[in-house]
Design a protein around this nucleic acid. Structure first.
Lengths: 177, 177
DNA sequence: TGACCCATGTAAGGGGTTACATGATTTG
DNA sequence: CAAATCATGTAACCCCTTACATGGGTCA
């Protein structure tokens, strides 16, 4: 899939370590691509083996050593190739919907409780996305222009979460009967 | 995850073969849970090994034999257990957003073409969901009541696709500049 | 005749999670 | 004193996709 290419994109704009990437995933890409550190370290190894990354060990005092990765020319070429190729639309595998689909076999109280749990998560996600949007909108024009494509992905998150919440309202009405 | 439990739900309401389930996935659950036949056959084997399904070979003339699976008591208990337990919110790994995020390294023409491809897919999906909704709304009250929970999952699909399209309109405006 | 439906699988490999493992430094 | 941050990994396992494999019946 495209964890590989997400990593290439992040390292293209700024070399970094695995730990570093994990943080950047949580912040920038986190709301539409998740990756745990274990997987990131594995991918970095594979990307290096493929010749797309160079790795330089960097000693630090009073901190563990780190390995700083950066794109090679081949890595850059691969990134461009991937960006040029079509990506497949996403499959969505949503366990909550499976549960609702089969919900006739359990109590509506249970389903309501489940919805409430998810509602809390989605509300929190939306709030944090809106906060990031506020920060973006407060930037000077030049920086806003530089971030306009990442901003589109943020908008996707916001519209998606708002739609989720609108649906949840419908669902709660049905479950209240 | 919950492919196992999606299968249990389908077989609970109606015993069937692997081929059969693959079709039912495409129709009923398909817009929020995807499964290829290869995986379904594997899962059926595992579910049988776990004692959750019984399998009965059924000979047919002028057609290949089929294996009809149905829930055991243990399978039914497992389904109830799963329905009672909380499910984790979904992770979303969306390659299109990764591409947009890194889109500064390619041409906007390329990004526009990519968006157009996805747009066509999402429009088609929405159309088919709306058609299913029309069929649902035309049902007599009693049947509508019986399908109200699956209908909620359909609504999720509709609201989700509409939100996607609204976002795409925003994105196209940005990419048109 | 070619495409599609019925019907079932194996095998290889990639993607991702969970559990386990270590150990110093900084902050509340 | 406890928790979080910095920093890196291994191993086992599950989930899922892709490619390969077979073979009869129906319909245009």
């Amino acid at each position: 899939m495209s964890l590989k290419h997400a990593i290439l994109i992040l390292l293209e704009s700024q070399p970094g370590s695995g730990y570093d990437l994990a943080k950047r995933f949580k912040e920038g890409l986190g709301y539409f691509w998740n990756a745990k550190h274990q997987q990131i370290y594995q991918e970095l190894k594979k990307l290096s083996a493929a010749g797309w990354l160079d790795c330089e060990a960097q000693a630090q005092d009073s901190r563990p050593d780190k390995k700083v990765y950066r794109l090679t020319a081949a890595g850059h070429a691969e990134l461009l190739r991937w960006l040029d190729a079509p990506v497949q639309p996403n499959r969505i595998n949503d366990a909550l919907l499976v549960k609702l689909f089969g919900g006739a076999h359990t109590s509506t109280a249970n389903l309501r409780a489940e919805m409430d749990r998810h509602l809390a998560v989605h509300r929190k996600t939306l709030d944090s996305l809106l906060a990031i949007e506020q920060a973006y909108l407060a930037l000077p024009d030049a920086q806003r222009a530089a971030w306009r494509l990442p901003y589109l992905t943020l908008r996707r998150g916001i519209l998606g979460e708002q739609a989720w919440l609108a649906w949840a309202a419908e669902a709660q009405q049905v479950l209240a009967e």
